[in-house]
C-alpha cells in the first residue's frame, strides 16, 4: 500500500538518510520524497510516499519517530490531509492544436511559464491523481517532457499539531493490534 508520511526533522547532515534508511532497510521502494526548509531554519519538512507492507504501517512511524533527529512524524495516509504536487511540462505544439490546448490548460488552471514557436512549458499543481490525468490528456496532443516534484502534504485538521510528541503513542496501539493480527 502507499503510505503518506509527513515529517519534521532537524536540519542536520545525515538526517534524511536516517529516515529513508528505516524504509530502505526493509526493501521498500520510495515513490516520492520532498525535503524543504520550514519557518524555523533549524528544521526541515519532509513528505514521503512509500510503498509499504500494510502490517508495518504503524511500526514504521514509531521507528522513524525513534530516530534522534526526527522531531515529529505523522501518518497522513488515511487522514484528511491537504496534499499537492507540482509538475513542469514541456509540450510540443502546432498552430492547429494551439487553441484546443490552451483551453485544456485553462480548464485545469495550469500556468504557462514559457512559450516559444514550437512548445509551451507549463506549471501545473494539483493532487497526484489530478496531475496524472492532466498529463495523460496533454500527452494526447503530442510528445511531452516533464518533471514532477513529488507530493507534499499537510494535516487537514483545523488546529495545528499538539506539542506533546508522545501523545499518540498509546492511541495507536489499538490500530497496530488490528494490523498485526496474525
Amino acid at each position: 500500500m502507499k503510505q503518506l508520511i509527513s515529517l519534521l526533522i532537524e536540519n542536520k547532515p545525515g538526517a534524511l538518510m536516517r529516515v529513508t534508511g528505516v524504509l530502505t532497510a526493509r526493501g521498500y521502494n520510495i515513490e516520492s520524497l520532498t525535503v524543504a526548509r520550514t519557518l524555523d531554519s533549524t528544521l526541515s519538512s519532509m513528505t514521503i510516499v512509500v510503498d509499504v507492507d500494510p502490517v508495518m504501517q504503524f511500526l514504521l512511524i514509531k521507528q522513524i519517530k525513534r530516530l534522534v533527529n526526527v522531531v515529529e512524524v505523522t501518518d497522513l495516509t488515511e487522514s484528511r490531509s491537504v496534499c499537492g504536487e507540482m509538475a513542469l511540462v514541456k509540450i510540443e505544439t502546432t498552430p492547429e492544436k494551439r487553441a484546443a490546448l490552451l483551453k485544456e490548460i485553462d480548464v485545469f488552471g495550469a500556468r504557462i511559464a514559457k512559450t516559444d514557436l514550437l512548445s509551451y512549458t507549463l506549471e501545473a499543481t494539483g493532487t497526484s491523481d489530478e496531475l496524472d490525468s492532466f498529463i495523460s490528456l496533454l500527452h494526447s496532443y503530442g510528445t511531452i517532457e516533464m518533471i514532477r516534484s513529488g507530493a507534499i502534504a499537510i494535516s487537514g485538521s483545523s488546529t495545528t499539531k499538539s506539542d506533546d510528541p508522545l501523545a499518540d503513542i498509546t492511541d495507536s496501539n489499538g490500530e497496530a493490534q488490528e494490523a498485526l493480527q496474525v
Binding site: 514509531k62 519517530k65 503513542i169 496501539n173 498485526l180
Partner: peptide, 17 residues
C-alpha cells in the same frame, strides 16, 4: 521504554511506555 516496541510483534492490551 521504547514506544516502537509497543505492538511491534505482539499488540498489548495495555502498553505502558
Amino acid at each position: 521504554i521504547d514506544p516502537a516496541e509497543m505492538g511491534k510483534n505482539r499488540s498489548p492490551d495495555l502498553g505502558i511506555v
